[in-house]
Simulated scan of single mutants.
Amino acid sequence: MNVKHKTVFIAFSSQKGGVGKSTFTTLAASTMHYRLGYNVAVFDADFPQHSLLKMKDRDLKMVMENEALKKQAYNQFMTINKKAYEIIQHRADSVLEAAQEYVNASPVPIDAVFFDLPGTVNTPGILKALAGMHHIFTPITADRVVMESTLVFTQLMKDIIMKEGETSIQTINLFWNQVDGRESTPLYDVYNTLIHQLGISLMQNQVKNSTRFRKESEVNSKVVFRSTLMPPDERLMKTCQLDLFMDEFLKIIQL
């Protein structure tokens, strides 16, 4: 492997469950690997759920049972000539070393490694793992509990780890997820002002609320959204503005 090749370490991380970190890990990894030509890998260190490994097992079963998706998967493989990206289970306390070994040993240059990490700072090794990321993305929703835990967590990363510790972190980016157009705009304005006052980076593009974020492929479905084997359908991406989010995401990680 070319040692000069740039590999970025990325985590969608949050101290609050249910805001979409595993979902966005899958959406971003699948878009980059299957549609945009990048080579990615995923390390699932979210013990004990390991939800991404379980998702891949479900995706494989679904493709085998769904003729439309089976045909799509076959055509995709014939077109891009790439296997599915690997999802490797590992402990948080040594996941950085394992990821670097994987990158060094890979027969193809790896552009990005995504890490699905535990959602609590009490997990052994979690702060070390986060400090080893190049970019951290944190989904937020207009909920007081979510905002309080997220801002405390982000301040910890920004003011302590980035300033005082040895770290690889280049950016920490909050972004609005599950945005409902019917919700009160002033509520977002208040939170946006607070985030700006704290000096925390907030992405411009918001991801709109969609039931697709909570659904995987169904038996009779002809399109996919959240899948480890195929990229999200482009029309569905536009519906929730995930396409605009990915454009901004790629500019931030500079790939």
Rank of each mutant, 00 (worst) to 15 (best):
N209G: 13
H5Q: 09
T154V: 07
Q100T: 12
I80Q: 13
H196S: 05
N177R: 04
K61L: 10
A99L: 10
A92D: 05
Y85R: 04
G20M: 04
Q72R: 12
Y34V: 04
I110C: 00
I169F: 11
N122E: 09
P109G: 11
G125Q: 10
V190I: 15
V121T: 03
V3H: 05
E164T: 08
R58D: 04
Y85C: 04
T123Q: 00
M32A: 04
R144W: 10
D59N: 15
L229F: 10
R144P: 02
T123L: 00
L69E: 15
F114N: 02
K61I: 07
T193F: 09
F115E: 04
T123D: 02
F24Q: 13
L130Q: 01
I80E: 11
Y38L: 06
A11F: 00
P109R: 03
H90D: 15
N39H: 04
S168A: 14
Q254D: 04
E97P: 12
F225W: 03
V145I: 08
N66R: 01
V121Y: 10
H135P: 01
S14K: 07
L52G: 02
F153A: 15
P124A: 06
L127R: 08
G181P: 04
Q204R: 14
M237S: 12
S168L: 06
K4D: 10
V121C: 11
D159E: 12
M55V: 07
P109N: 05
A98W: 05
F9V: 14
S51N: 06
L202H: 15
R235H: 03
E101K: 09
Q76R: 10
V145N: 04
K238C: 01
A28W: 08
T171M: 03
H196Y: 15
T239K: 11
F12Q: 05
R144T: 14
A112Y: 14
F249G: 12
H33Q: 09
V207W: 07
F249M: 08
E101F: 05
